[in-house]
Amino acid sequence: MKLNSSVKNITALNNLTAITKEDFTRVALNIFQFQHRHNPVYHQFCNALHINPASVTAINQIPFLPVAFFKTHTIATTTFEPAAVFESSGTTQTINSKHFVKDIALYEESFNTAFRLFYGDPKDWCIIALLPSYLERSNSSLIMMADKLIEQSAHAQSGFYLHDLEKLHYTITSLENQQQKTLLLGVTFALLDFAEQYPMHLQYTTIMETGGMKGRRREMTRQEVHDILCTSFKVNVVHSEYGMTELLSQAYSTGHGIFSCPPWMKVLVREEDDPLTVLSANKENIVSGAVNIIDLANIYSCSFIATDDAAKLYPDESFEILGRLDNSDIRGCSLLSL
C-alpha cells in the first residue's frame, strides 16, 4: 500500500501548525488504515477486537494499542532498520519500553516545531538541562531532545548538569544578573533538591519539570511539587513537559498543570473500566478518565496509544494529568500520584 498524500505530508511534518480539526481527523484515519495494514502487532490487536478497518470512520472508533505492548513487542509499521531505539527509564523492577524509530529527522522536526510553537526560537534562550537520571543511561529520547535544543540555543552557558548543584546555582545567578532569558528543564527530584539547597528569586528563568521521582523522594502530586518550586524560587508558575518514550511528540504546560498539544497530537480520555469507550468533552462538560494519545508523528510505530495515565480533559482539548491508573507499572518518567 502506498502512502496517500495526507500521510506523506505527515511523514515530512509539513505545515502541521496549520492543521484544522477536520484535517487531523482525515489524516489520523489515513494513518490508521496504513498502520492496520503494515504494523503486524497492531493488525493482530485490531483483529483480536474484531475491528473491521472499513467500518472505522471516526477517531473514537480507532483502537488504541495499550502502551504496555512497547515493553513486550516490537511496534513497527513497515519493515526497517531503526535509526535509533529509545528506551524508557523504568525502575529495577520493571521491563523498559522500547520505541524503534525509523527516521530521527521525524523526531527532531516534531520536537523542534513544538518547542518553537510554545516557546519561540531556541536561540532566544539559554537552555539548562538538569536531568541526572537520564544522563546516567543511554537511549533517552528526552536527552536527545534537550541536547538538540541546547545546540540550537548556542548560548555559551547552555548545557547539561549532573549532580553539581553549586555550579548550577552559580550559573543561574550569573544569567539572572545578565537578565538572560533562561529555561531550566529538570527532572522533578533534581529540581526539588536544587530548590531546597539553593532557593533564590528567579525573574528571568522559566522552570520546566519533566516529571520523575524514580524512588528518590516520597510521591507528590504535581501541585505539591509546583507549590514547593514556586515558593523556593519566588515564581508565579512552573511549566511542564508531557512526553514519553513511546511518543515522538510532547505536550506542554505553561502553568497550573494544564497541558496543550501541538496540532499533530491529541489527547482523549477513555472509561477506566471500559477501555474501548472514548469520552468526549464539550462546552458544558469536563471529563475524566484514562489517557489515549494520538501522535501523528508516530507513523512508523503506532499513532494510537492507550496510556496508563489518568487525566481531566477540558472542552478546549487542554488536559490535566491526575496521576497513574491503579495497578499500572510505575514509569520512571511519570511518578506523580493522585
Rank of each mutant, 00 (worst) to 15 (best):
M1H: 10
N9P: 00
N14S: 15
I19H: 14
D23T: 09
V27Q: 11
V27A: 13
N30K: 01
F34T: 01
H36Y: 15
N39W: 03
N39D: 07
P40R: 11
P40T: 04
V41T: 14
Y42E: 06
I51W: 09
P53F: 05
P53V: 10
P63I: 02
P63Y: 12
V67N: 09
A68E: 12
F69I: 00
F70I: 01
F70S: 04
K71P: 03
K71W: 01
K71V: 01
T72R: 14
T72E: 06
A76C: 14
F80N: 02
E81Q: 10
P82A: 05
V85F: 05
V85G: 10
F86D: 03
S88F: 04
T92G: 01
I95R: 13
H99D: 00
F100L: 05
D103M: 04
E108L: 04
S110E: 00
F111Y: 14
N112V: 01
Y119F: 15
G120H: 07
P122Q: 12
K123L: 09
C126D: 00
S133Q: 10
R137A: 08
R137F: 05
L142D: 01
I143A: 08
I143E: 01
M145C: 07
A146W: 03
A146L: 10
I150D: 08
A154M: 02
H155F: 06
S158L: 04
F160S: 04
F160M: 08
Y161K: 07
T171D: 15
L183I: 13
E196N: 13
E196G: 09
Y204K: 13
T210H: 06
T210D: 01
M213I: 11
M213P: 00
R217Q: 10
M220F: 08
R222I: 02
D227L: 06
I228Y: 03
I228H: 09
S232M: 04
S240F: 01
Y242F: 13
E246G: 08
L247H: 12
A251E: 02
G255P: 03
I258R: 06
F259Y: 15
P263G: 05
V267W: 03
V269K: 04
V269C: 09
L276K: 10
L279M: 06
S280M: 07
K283G: 12
N285Y: 02
G289Q: 07
A290S: 13
A290M: 10
V291K: 02
A297Y: 04
S301C: 12
D309E: 09
D309H: 07
Y314A: 14
P315E: 05
S318Y: 02
D326F: 04
N327K: 14
I330Y: 07
R331N: 14
C333Q: 08
C333A: 13
L335M: 12
L336Y: 09
